[in-house]
Computed example of a mutant assay.
Amino acid sequence: MPKAEESVLEIDLNALAHNFKTIKSQLTPGVKFMSVIKAYAYGNDSVAIAQKLEELGTDYFAVAYTEEGIRLRKAGITSPILILHSQPVNFPKIIEHCLEPNLYSARTLELFIRIAEKQKQKDYPVHIKFNTGMNRLGFTEVNYYNIPEKIKKTSAIKIVSAFSHLAASENWREREFTLSQIHNFSNLATQLVKDIDYEPLLHICNTSAIFNYPKAGFSMVRSGLGLYGFANDPKLNARLKPVGTLKTVISQIQELEKGDTVGYGRAFKVKGPTRTATVPLGHADGIKRIYGHGKAGFFVNGKYAPIVGKVCMDIIMIDVTQIDCKEGDEVIVFGGPQHATRFAAAGGTIPYELITGISQRVTRKIIN
């Protein structure tokens, strides 16, 4: 594998395939698989990821917003795509590009029916979300009546799935709450099937729940973070392979003496002979200022090099005093010797935020 000559996020499609197959192996035969590829496929490359997952046989895709779905359609993705947070202003675009909206309130349901009827649609596929305790989006038991009331009056739409979102499926201390969510969803779904007289796909499991609550698979599961190699659990992480490896390169090496300072605000003061390496990466690329002052570091030729001073917008300096290296050598930020979970923890955050925050100005490179 050629070494990085600039800041690059390598995206390993073999690792993606491994994760897809590993997660899918947990499912009861016949349960469908929805691949969540919102936010540029969790900071990777949504088109390349979607193409590979379509090749692997995923049944569904899910993205957060309409433009994400349109991007996939323009790239030739033909599988059904759920828009998880559809906005009424985009309903015409959703229909134009054969996307499928999540209708999570009486307002969104009514407005989408109105547009679908105006366009003379017949059985247009929509998804209904139930709020079982996450308290972000979705119909509750209190306003459930709006669903059958409006569905029975139109032939313009058809519910193809009903779903909910677990709040803490990775946390065994919240097991009672998670089981209550699953129970509430089952009750609402049972009532829905009875009221509309057909059974849509039902799904509540995310990656953690696929492993921790296998009996709650219903007829479809959703996996996002797990596809990219993370599962909020060290044992599960060990079974998965991180898809992304963030690499950069040493631009210059500085030989410093006691009393010299490094970076803005003279934040790092040299106490003795020190070698620092400057790399072309900064907080504009997603490596936030919180990682500065030695809280985190990168790997150079297999050895750990802590960040010195402040993280700049486009540049970071690392201490390579004890490392045999030269200008042009490769630097690994995460992936390989440093799991993204470890790097994220050094900044007091989680891999979700880290990997989705890698700027689009960092070159994406598809491998395998």
Rank of each mutant, 00 (worst) to 15 (best):
4 A>H: 05
13 L>A: 07
16 L>I: 03
31 V>T: 08
55 E>I: 05
57 G>S: 01
67 E>K: 03
79 S>Q: 12
82 L>T: 05
100 E>Y: 10
104 Y>E: 02
117 E>W: 07
122 K>L: 14
131 N>M: 01
133 G>I: 09
138 G>Q: 02
142 V>F: 11
151 I>C: 08
152 K>C: 12
153 K>L: 15
153 K>V: 09
159 I>E: 03
160 V>L: 10
160 V>T: 13
164 S>T: 04
167 A>P: 06
170 E>G: 07
172 W>D: 10
172 W>G: 01
174 E>W: 12
174 E>T: 01
179 L>D: 04
182 I>V: 10
182 I>M: 05
183 H>T: 08
187 N>F: 14
189 A>C: 06
200 P>Y: 06
201 L>M: 05
209 A>T: 00
214 P>Q: 04
217 G>H: 11
240 L>D: 05
244 G>F: 11
255 E>M: 11
257 E>L: 12
267 A>Y: 14
269 K>R: 14
273 P>A: 15
281 L>F: 14
285 D>L: 08
301 N>I: 14
315 I>N: 15
320 V>N: 04
327 E>N: 08
332 I>D: 05
332 I>P: 04
333 V>G: 10
333 V>T: 12
333 V>S: 12
336 G>H: 08
347 G>H: 09
348 G>L: 10
361 R>S: 11
364 R>W: 15
365 K>T: 06
